[in-house]
Design a protein around this nucleic acid. Sequence first.
DNA 1: AACACTGACCTATCGCCGATAGGTCTGTCA
DNA 2: TGACAGACCTATCGGCGATAGGTCAGTGTT
Lengths: 193, 193
Amino acid sequence: MVVSKVAQRREAKVASIVEAAWSLAREHGIQLVSLRHLAKEVGMQQPSLYAYFDSKNALYDAMFADGNRQLLETLDSIDLPADPRVALKTYLGAFADFAVADPARNSLLFRRVVPGFEPSAEAYAVAREALARLVSVMYAAGVTDHGDIDCLVAMTAGLIEAQLSNEPGGDRWLRHLNRMTDVLADNALERRL
Amino acid sequence: MVVSKVAQRREAKVASIVEAAWSLAREHGIQLVSLRHLAKEVGMQQPSLYAYFDSKNALYDAMFADGNRQLLETLDSIDLPADPRVALKTYLGAFADFAVADPARNSLLFRRVVPGFEPSAEAYAVAREALARLVSVMYAAGVTDHGDIDCLVAMTAGLIEAQLSNEPGGDRWLRHLNRMTDVLADNALERRL
DNA sequence: AACACTGACCTATCGCCGATAGGTCTGTCA
DNA sequence: TGACAGACCTATCGGCGATAGGTCAGTGTT
C-alpha cells in the first residue's frame, strides 16, 4: 500500500487532536490551550502529544495551516457576482464573516498573540495563497496599486479588529464595510487616471 | 504631613517597578514579563512584589494606566494647527507615532493580547479620556457622525496594526495615513449634506 | 509461525511560572 | 520607649511545556 495503515491512523489522530485543540481554543482562548488539558480531551497523557507534535508551537503551526485551509475553502466556495465591484464587496464581506465567526481562529491566523509562534514556511504558504485570492479580486475591480491594496486590506482588518474587540457578535463596525470598500475603491480608481 | 514618608516611598517604589516592567516588556514582549525576572531587576524576590501589586494583572493594570497617561501627555503637548483638517491629520499622525514607537506598550494599550487582563475602571477612564481628545478633534474637522468616527478610528488602527505586524520601523502602511484621513473625512463631509 | 522492530503510549521528573503562607526585622509614630 | 505595620524574606503549592526512559502491542520480514 502506498499509504500504510500506520500512516493513515497517525494522520487521522493528528487531525482529531487539532480539532480538539480548536474546540479548547474556542472555549478558553487560543493562548490558554494547555497540552495537559488537550491531552485529557483526546484521552492521553500530556507527554504523549509529543509523538504527534514536536512542541506546542508545532501544534499551533498545524492549527494555523488548518485555519488557513478553512479560509481558502470558504473563499473558493463563493460564486462571485459578475460586477467586479460587487464581487470585491462580496469577497471582503465573506472574509470578515469568516474572521468574526471564530475569534480564537482569528487570533491565531491574523493577530500575533502567541509569543514566540512563527508559522512555518509551509503553513504560511497557505496563508499567502488566501491573500492572493483577495488581491486578484481587487485587481479585477481595478484596485491595482500596491498602496491602495494595502489600505483596503488594512481598513478591512481594522473594522474586523474593532468589531471583535469591542462588540463581538454585533455589527457596529462591520456594517460600514461595504461603504468603506466603495470609498476606498472609488478613490483608487480616481487616482489611476 | 498630609502624605506620609511611607506613602511617598511606596509610591516611588511602585513607579520604579512599573518602569522596570516597561523595560522588560520592550525587551521581551509584554506577555513574557515574569514576576521573577522583574523582581530580580528591582532587587527583590518574586513574592515581595505582592506587597505592591495584588496580582500580575494588577501590575498590568498599573502599566495600562501609566501608558495611557503617557498617551494623554503626548496628545496634550501637541499645539494644533488652526486648520481643523490639518489639526486632525496632525493628531492622528501623532497617535500613530506614539503607537509605533513602542510595540510592547501598543500591545498592552490597544490590542488584547494578555489573556484574562481587563483594565480596571480607573485605568480605563484614562484611556477614555485620550479617546475623547481624538473625538473632539474629529468633531472640529466636521466628522461628527458616530459611524464616520468609528471608521476613521478603525482605519487608523488598521494601518498601525499592519505596520507593526509586517514591517515595524517602516512606513509602508503609515505613509498612507494622511491621504486616507482626507478620503474618509471628505466622504464624511459629503454625506453630511 | 517466530521474531525483531517501531509506533503509541505510559510514569517520573525538570525548570519556570503565578500565587500563598508564614516568618523576621526595621523604621515610624503615639 | 514600646507597639505596630511596612517591607522584605524563605518555603511551598499547583500548573505549565519539555525531556528521559520504560512498556507493550501490532506490523512487516524471514
